[in-house]
Design a protein around this nucleic acid. Structure first.
Lengths: 114, 114
DNA sequence: TACTCATATGTGTTATCGCTCATATGTGGT
DNA sequence: ACCACATATGAGCGATAACACATATGAGTA
């Protein structure tokens, strides 16, 4: 057992978290946010997504508290309440690179190495 | 920039990885695998999923090289080629706990464990 | 008050996903 | 060769997700 059984109790919640991160545009939004709080308009410009779409994804992120809104006048600034999340994303990203097996890529994009 | 811009180049691939992990049953399968190589029959018993369903998910995991099959007689053993993945999962799981915000739980369903 | 800008929300459409059923493939034993 | 068992695969169905459109809310300003 030990690490084998792993934390399978929280699989449900864990999968919900991953589901949130499994949407490229939502990831983009999180990345665009980075460590700063930014108004939606910035995110829109940054990601190139439609206003509706950004708002749509922000809702999902907000409801699971991955981001958190702050009014400032007419603008609403979104922040990552826990920037540690970025580190986790980076860990995964790095792992993917080294995983070497390489082409995760369903998209057919192949990369040289690390 | 720095961590802000993050690795937004590989957002696509990262999201694909997360999509794989966003399915509770796929997560269960990975957990059930743990560090050992195990035949499909074990996974089926362990997870309580149907044979077809397990096979279905194994295909997805296999095709992205998150697991890797090894024939042994009539049986096919599946392994995690890179157990580091389990650590990443654990990191996320831990983060979720501490994230405190608590109820990720979009479904509103609160669960102790099982 | 009315008008503008920033953002959110409800509805409907389309695509994708997870699952199951039935069946196929592959392996070992007789 | 046949049979039993382990696993994989393809087709089809129902649920859900992402998106756009139109519209609503809410803040600021005049």
């Amino acid at each position: 057992m030990s690490i084998n059984t792993y934390n399978c109790g929280s699989v449900k919640r864990l999968s919900e978290l991953f589901k949130l991160l499994s949407e490229p545009n939502r990831l983009k939004i999180l990345c665009s946010l980075g460590l700063e709080c930014r108004p939606v308009s910035d995110i829109i410009e940054d990601t190139g997504l439609s206003q509706t779409n950004v708002s749509f994804h922000l809702r999902a992120l907000r409801e699971s508290e991955l981001v958190h809104p702050e009014r400032k006048g007419a603008f609403i600034y979104y922040c990552l309440p826990d920037p540690e999340l970025l580190r986790l994303l980076k860990d995964f990203s790095d792992w993917m690179e080294n995983h070497g097996s390489s082409n995760e890529t369903i998209t057919g994009k192949k990369k040289a190495a690390q």
